[in-house]
Design a protein around this nucleic acid. Sequence first.
DNA 1: TCTATTCTCGTACGATGTACGAGAATAGAG
DNA 2: CTCTATTCTCGTACATCGTACGAGAATAGA
Lengths: 202, 202
Amino acid sequence: MITAAAVALADAEGLDAVTMRRVAAEVGAGVMSLYSYAPDKETLLELMVDHVSGELTVTDPPSGDWRADLKTVARLQRAHMLRHPWLPAALSTRRVPGPNTLAFLEHVLAVLRPTGLDGAAKLEVFAQITAFVAGYVAHEIAQAAVSRSPDRAAAEGRYLAAVAADGCHPELAEALSAPGRPLTPRRHLHPFPQPPDRRPRY
Amino acid sequence: MITAAAVALADAEGLDAVTMRRVAAEVGAGVMSLYSYAPDKETLLELMVDHVSGELTVTDPPSGDWRADLKTVARLQRAHMLRHPWLPAALSTRRVPGPNTLAFLEHVLAVLRPTGLDGAAKLEVFAQITAFVAGYVAHEIAQAAVSRSPDRAAAEGRYLAAVAADGCHPELAEALSAPGRPLTPRRHLHPFPQPPDRRPRY
DNA sequence: TCTATTCTCGTACGATGTACGAGAATAGAG
DNA sequence: CTCTATTCTCGTACATCGTACGAGAATAGA
């Protein structure tokens, strides 16, 4: 399956590695053959997103405690996005929801039933939670990537330290100095794969 | 100024219009001259983001009520991003904060002082609020763009209606049918309005 | 078996970011 | 003022991207 190959590629080497040529090579087909499967790359990305969304299967029915259920939903999404670190970026442009996404949405709507919100509001809550988790995980991933390249982390640390030392940013100075951990990465559920570190500069 | 030209271009024609050639033409210089100003396009984007962040000037000092202050901060950011609709996309990759961003961060840190959070947590709160607002506004903008092209909106509406009619998505069916508005764009006029009041306390 | 239809995909085109280095402009020294 | 050295400007060129086009291969129908 073309979509699966594209997903594997994105998982292994990042979203930038997903080019039509590369996917075609991975599948063992000509480049233009992909266009009989998806009319353009944008659509292929949609297919990828929905494909991995198939992993978002919820077994337990809503408990009735929508706050707790939403927490579970968000945790599920976070784990999902950590497993596919390209997801936050792929979700950053609006996409029409595929069947797997709709199945998950169906569950979230059921979770939200006790809130008494109207339909539009529930849909909005879903979109907002997804966006929030995406932003959170994107931050997590970026942070981890920075920490992984010590020179960049050091450069940024020096830069911020210099700013903090200029006297115009007392709050920042305090925030950076106070605890032992300056900018700690948090424990992530699974070790997640990472695209090769680009951007040598700075 | 090169950055200002790039910002004007992005404001007028979107982030995709910001190409090195285009910016150079706008400034009346050769393409490669831009590279004596910023080492690469990524950096130019950083400069653009920080440039417009200069508009985020906060006059009032923190009131002491950090919830209210954070609400104000978020509203300010939202108005800012609606004024520069390319911002959410530009913020989606991690950037090192420039001076204007740092000035704003300084204010948010002051706002967060009464929370008693440690420095790292405060920084995280800032990042999360920014990411959340970016996601929110991105959704708003995308929604508005969809509504603006009636054929696409109709196609999506038909698609969702078909899914809702298949019997496997009762919650979705109800969510789409219930109120008069199926997927309504919200009012995003200049005096920043308030999305319908939700349960505030958490 | 011959024709018609569909599928596959090699080639080519217009973008893009940017490396390279030739020329223009400026500065310093005599 | 002249000549050289240094810096700035930027035209050209290249690799890479998405994808339009249409020639050939494969398949189906008669």
